[in-house]
Design a binder for these strands. Structure first.
Ligand code: MN
Ligand code: MN
Ligand code: ZN
Ligand code: ZN
Lengths: 136, 136
DNA sequence: CAATGCCATGCAACCCGATTGCAAAGGTTA
DNA sequence: TAACCTTTGCAATCGGGTTGCATGGCATTG
């Protein structure tokens, strides 16, 4: 995962510092959307603000995208290959209200929504809430 | 608006106290989604926590629904007539990144999303972000 | 009417995720 | 080596949301 992280950082032109490699490797390893706190707990000897700023950098360089799933904590997930975080790359997210896991539903494109006259869409945050397949 | 608020509270079986009438009248008057802070500023002689608890009560009794538009503040909007806050009453919301207004897009039903096997949808928060018709 | 009980309200304090200021550490370049 | 820029760690702060507690208002009961 370390190698994979380093390669991905190179592709995205982000300088591969130690914190960045660790954070990205962890996001790649547990292939689920993770919060700042999740990462803080997992990388317990790395400072929270460093992880925070790393995530901001990752967002800026389209390494990860953030998901506001309504849980109160922003979640971060590695962007799929080819993703540029454009409207066309938008996808649904599913938040399990039981286990708190957040999933990227990459298979369903989000539909074109007919907006009122002269409204322009730039981004979207589409979250479906319910129970995942591992929860009762 | 005061009358309308009192009538609506009666319909929803919520005891019409002074704070509740004021809050609901204000939500009805400015027919847009408003945050706790918005209401706090408008009803400057009413306590924040009272407004907060009023909004919680309104949610519980399906008087209003809340919208997490990603602005960092929860927004509240009066439910349309006949709304029971069931999945069938879900609708898109539009958040203008310029003027920070949040609109209920009541005309577009949200589509049925094909979920992975054994995932069950209970709720959803669908927010489209961009520019509204009053913004450049 | 007085006593009781319940719910709503106001105020202050707290919680917690997010964010920032600042100095030290690392690495790069001249 | 010296100057410079970026990253990191630590501590403090911010801000929306939430809660504990005492008071107030109102209705019910005796
Ligand atoms: Mn995703
Ligand atoms: Mn709405
Ligand atoms: Zn689950
Ligand atoms: Zn606007």
């Amino acid at each position: 995962m370390i190698d994979k992280a380093e390669r991905l950082l190179a592709v995205k032109s982000v300088k591969p510092t130690s914190v960045r490699i660790l954070v990205l490797a962890h996001l790649l390893k547990d292939a689920k959307a993770q919060s700042l706190k999740d990462l803080e707990v997992s990388l317990y000897n790395t400072d929270r603000s460093s992880i925070f700023r790393t995530l901001k950098t990752f967002e800026e360089y389209k390494v990860v995208h953030s998901i506001d799933d309504g849980s109160g904590m922003m979640k971060y997930a590695v962007c799929a290959e080819g993703c540029n975080c454009d409207p066309k790359d938008l996808h649904y997210h599913f938040y399990c209200t039981n286990c708190s896991l957040t999933y990227c539903l990459l298979d369903n494109p989000i539909p074109i929504v007919t907006l009122p006259e002269n409204f322009k869409m730039h981004q979207a945050n589409m979250v479906i809430k319910g129970l995942c397949d591992k929860c009762p």
